[in-house]
């Protein structure tokens, strides 16, 4: 049942956003990959120090943030579908809802920063927290950029020419950017919170 509905959605093969956008997406993801490998390398050198520092963080909070981003990604998927079906205001509303998810994510993240500064003296001198702040900090910058894009998308989705080719290209790029933000967190979360 579900698969037949999915099959109807698929026209011929189509590049999401446009070919050039993938230069950016794969490039950005690969550099994060390099960063992940560096982190794992240094973690492997002194695993006990990293695990000890990591124990201050609450993995449940990290899990909650993962669920929030997954929810927001799904909202974007539904918003794009709604737009294809011509339900512009619903689509716009769903996009705004995913901006709110991004806001909740950042609020939880920054409250965690506060907690780290409270519990650890000079956390930037601890290797684990150096990686923690830089990984989550660069990711948070991506979240902020993504929230900006989603707001623009929410406005574009309401326009008369919402599904014109140029507009659609932008909407798909914004959607893919947001999914990339989610995807990066899917790796950062286990690397920082779950590895022992």
């Amino acid at each position: 049942m579900i698969s037949t509905i999915g099959a109807q959605d698929k026209p011929s093969r189509h590049i999401p956003a446009e070919a050039g956008a993938w230069v950016f997406l794969f490039g950005d993801m690969s550099i994060f990959g390099l960063f992940f490998a560096t982190y794992l390398y240094y973690r492997g050198i002194s695993p006990a120090d990293f695990t000890a520092a990591q124990s201050i963080l609450d993995p449940n909070l990290g899990t909650l943030n993962t669920l929030i981003l997954l929810l927001s990604s799904w909202l974007v998927v539904v918003a794009m579908r709604a737009l294809r079906m011509g339900r512009q205001s619903l689509s716009s509303g769903l996009l705004i809802a995913s901006v709110l998810c991004g806001g909740i994510f950042l609020t939880l993240k920054f409250s965690e920063y506060g907690k780290v500064f409270e519990l650890v003296d000079e956390p930037l001198k601890v290797d684990y927290f150096m990686y923690y702040f830089m990984l989550t900090g660069l990711h948070s910058l991506h979240v902020m950029v993504g929230m900006g894009l989603l707001l623009f998308m929410a406005r574009h989705a309401l326009g008369v020419s919402a599904t014109s080719p140029a507009n659609w290209q932008f909407l798909e790029f914004g959607g893919c950017y947001w999914h990339m933000v989610d995807l990066l967190w899917i790796v950062i979360f286990p690397l920082l919170y779950l590895l022992r």
Partner: peptide, 27 residues
């Protein structure tokens, strides 16, 4: 074409389940 009951949503449920599994393994 259904807004909510579609393949993307079932993929989403799998993602949630996978998150739960790695949470169990990690914690």
């Amino acid at each position: 074409m259904n807004l909510v009951f579609n393949k993307a949503s079932s993929v989403w449920l799998v993602l949630i389940l996978a998150t739960a599994i790695s949470w169990v393994i990690g914690t």
